[in-house]
Each structure stands twice: as C-alpha cells, then as structure tokens.
C-alpha cells in the first residue's frame, strides 16, 4: 500500500493520510475486513507523529470507512456503496454548478461545455 505524504503541501498530513486511505477503499484496493497498520507502525513508517495518524484513523472511523476492533486494531469497514455513490454524485454536482456559473457569466454555450466533457472523458480512457 502506497501512502505518499508531502511535507510542503498546505493540506495537513492527517488529511493526506485520510484521503489516500479513503481513495484506496473506494477503488477497492483495500477491501472490507482488511487490517490497517497500527497507529504507531504507520507513524513510524511515515515518520510522522502518532497524534497525526491517530487523527487520520479517528476521522476515517467517524466517516464510516474504518471500524475499530478493541485490542485488535483498525479494519476497513463494509462501505455502503449506494451512500458513497450518492456522496460522490453530490460532489460532482457542486463542481458542475461552478462550471455552469462560469459558463453563464461568460456566455459560453452548453454545447461547448458538453463537447469539452466528451473530450475529457475520451482522454481519461
């Protein structure tokens, strides 16, 4: 499992850890029931504070991506795919909202945006 921490980034380190683990869960690189490294082992390997990794795990637990098993450790939770799907869709809607705003202000046609989307989709493939 790769976790890449940038010390020069403005994003706090705990958030970098959290987001990267989340991504791995969403992309099924980490599966439900997988055991995550312990707070201390992860801090050692990433050379960061124990408090940092603890914060990252606590937030993952709060958001439902990870569960704690007492005296055993942190496991990847069974995620509710439907819920995650809706969350991601919400995210996209918010982003598209600003796209539409910019487009309207600058009188850019819907068709232009659509074709842009098509191009971007093709590139991704």
């Amino acid at each position: 499992m790769d976790i890449i921490i940038s010390n020069s980034s403005e994003v706090p380190i705990y958030e970098q850890i959290k987001e990267q683990i989340k991504e791995k869960i969403l992309s099924s690189e980490l599966l439900a029931g997988d055991l995550l490294p312990s707070i201390r082992a992860l801090a050692k390997d990433l050379r960061c504070s124990v408090i940092t990794t603890k914060n990252a795990y606590e937030e993952l637990v709060n958001e439902g991506y990870v569960v704690v098993v007492a005296a055993k450790g942190f496991y990847v939770a069974e995620i509710n795919r439907q819920l995650v799907y809706e969350e991601q869709l919400n995210k996209i809607e918010t982003l598209l909202d600003s796209v539409v705003n910019i487009a309207k202000i600058n009188h850019i046609k819907k068709e232009t945006i659509n074709s842009l989307l098509d191009i971007l989709y093709e590139e991704e493939k």
Partner: peptide, 12 residues
C-alpha cells in the same frame, strides 16, 4: 538514531 527512537515508541 531517529529510526531507533521510533522503534522505541512502538511500545505505547
């Protein structure tokens, strides 16, 4: 040396 300190702190 820092690695050794980090090893040391593995014990909570």
């Amino acid at each position: 040396v820092i690695d050794i300190f980090l090893d040391f702190i593995q014990n909570e």
